[in-house]
Structure formats: C-alpha cells, structure tokens
C-alpha cells in the first residue's frame, strides 16, 4: 500500500490549523530535520520547540515520520568536512528521536565554498559530482538505512535537462539509495527551462522512486528580472496544479517501489479557508494511488 503524507512546518499557527488534517487524513509526517534544531555558530545542534511539538504529535497519533532535509548539501566540494560532521551528528540525534522511515535531501548544493546559499543549486552532471553525492548518501546511510535525493527545482541547469535522469542513475548505484520524485519541481523546471516533462520521465528509472512529492507554486514578478521574464517558482504556496495531478496519475502506477506520496505546503501560506482544500488534495492523492 502506498502511504499518503503531509509536511510539518515550523509554525505554530500552521500546526494548529492543520491538526485535524494531520490526525485524521495523513498516514505519516514529513519533517525537515533542520527546522527542529537550534545552532549557534560552531556549537552542536540542539532541539528546539518544534522538535518537541512534532514528536508529541507522532507519539499521540502513532504515525511515523520521514525526513526531507535541505542542509546536508549533497554536492558540495569545497569544504573541510567539519560542517558535514556536525550535520551528520545532528541527523543521528534526530534519527534516534524520530525513527525516520527514510531520509532524503535535495540534489544540488546549499553550501558553496563555505557560503550558505540555502537553496539547492545545480551541479555539473559529471562523474566527479555523481561520486560526491554518492559519498554523502553513503555517509547518511550509516545513520538511516534508506536514503535518497529529490530532483530539485532549478532555475538554471548546468547541462541539458533531458540528461538529468542519466545523471541520477550514476548517483543511485548503491542498494537502498532512492529517488524522491518531486512532480512539481519537474513541472516547474519543464516550464522554466522549456522541455517535455513526459520525455524526462521516459528516461528515468522509475524503479528507484521511493516517494513522490506534489505541491503548487506561483510566479515571479516581472520587475524581479531585467528581462521582465516571469518564471514559475517552487514556492509551495498554492493548490496543486492540474498538470501535476496528471503527472501523478500517469507516473505513480509505474513506480513499483513507491512507498509514499507527500503533499507539501509552506508555512505562512495556510489560512482557515485553505484547510478544506488541503483535505481534498490529500483525498485526491489517496484516490490516485490507493
């Protein structure tokens, strides 16, 4: 059976408004571990209030957690290893508390040459970059046996979009390393970079997909760019678009090892009026993959 999950976000209003949905409609909770840590300078990570809030929800409902991080920076080359060691230690601490079923992070780098860019930026699709990501996933596997990466939303690419699936294949050589297929990211990239999402999926090894993400997004403002071009944003602040639902309907049945589909939503974007819509979206996910 494919489970249906929902994201927990570090915002009390979000958690309060969505409590009934989380208790009644979701099979599991997705946590971004970094949102449950406090870190000052070089000190070790320690739990914050959301760590306690999320754990309490898990204990009360008996529902499992999965992890979707953003801070491991799978493709960083230029660093001495101290940041990575601290990050892995915090993940180990989180795993002891949350018992994640699997742990994914974003493909790309969020730290470049010691600089925190904090959004995943693309990697060159070289064998060296694939090896670097494989090594990081290997280190993560020492803590959580099932690990993987998500196809990220990138606003530029360092190669041809239709070569990405082959690059993924070079990363996912080890057993129990998986792909988190984010269909909104794929849709966003297809719109912005001008390629056919179906053709991209045809090139992808769908047997490696452990989880699928669905979400919505919005558009950039014309004044953001000198060209005044409007680009689609992976902002998780709107309903799932029909194009993404169609991708889910066509793709999920072709993923034989799929274990969960997660509906993502960003904190600060949910009002009372959104809760029925999100419930319906979760129900639609369940109807689609059930």
């Amino acid at each position: 059976m494919v489970l249906v999950g929902f994201t927990l976000q570090p915002e009390r209003e979000y958690c309060g408004l969505l409590e009934p949905l989380l208790v009644e409609d979701a099979d599991y909770f997705e946590v971004t571990p970094e949102t449950t840590w406090v870190r000052d300078g070089d000190e070790l990570f320690r739990p914050n209030g959301f760590w306690r809030l999320f754990r309490e929800l898990g204990e009360r409902t008996g529902k499992p957690f999965i992890a979707h991080g953003v801070g491991l920076s799978l493709g960083t080359f230029a660093e001495d290893g101290a940041r990575l060691a601290r990050c892995l230690e915090a993940i180990r601490m989180s795993q002891e508390a949350f018992r994640f079923l699997w742990y994914t992070d974003h493909l790309g780098a969020t730290v470049l040459d010691g600089r925190a860019v904090t959004i995943p930026v693309p990697l060159p699709m070289t064998s060296e970059a694939a090896a670097a990501v494989r090594d990081r996933l290997g280190a993560l596997q020492e803590i959580v046996p099932d690990v993987g990466f998500e196809n990220s939303a990138f606003y530029y690419l360092l190669g041809k979009p239709l070569e990405e699936p082959a690059f993924f294949g070079r990363i996912l050589e080890r057993p129990r390393t998986h792909l988190l297929l984010d269909l909104h990211n794929l849709f966003t990239n297809a719109v912005n970079l001008g390629f056919d999402a179906e053709a991209w999926l045809e090139r992808l090894d769908l047997t490696r997909v452990i989880e699928i993400h669905v979400s919505g997004g919005s558009a950039s403002e014309p004044e953001w760019l000198p060209s005044r071009r409007v680009m689609r944003l992976d902002s998780h602040d709107a309903p799932v678009p029909e194009e993404v639902w169609r991708l889910l309907e066509r793709t999920a049945p072709r993923c034989p090892n799929l274990r969960g589909v997660t509906l993502e939503r960003m904190e600060g974007t949910v009002g009372e009026g959104d809760v029925p819509l999100l419930r319906e979206e979760l129900a639609r996910v369940r109807r689609t993959v059930g």
Partner: peptide, 29 residues
C-alpha cells in the same frame, strides 16, 4: 571543457533569479 560547457548551459534569467532568491532568503533569515 566539460565544466565550461556546464557553465555555458546556464539560463541567464534563471541565474539572476537564483541570485535574487539567495539574497531574499538571507533577508528573510
């Protein structure tokens, strides 16, 4: 050459949007 080709593939608007988002996230932080 492979890394130079990778750089050449980058969409200028996408690059500028990414740099803007890096700054925006820092501002919000």
């Amino acid at each position: 050459p492979a890394l130079k080709e990778a750089l050449a593939a980058a969409d200028p608007d996408g690059l500028r949007l990414t740099a803007l988002l890096v700054a925006k996230l820092r501002f919000e932080r």
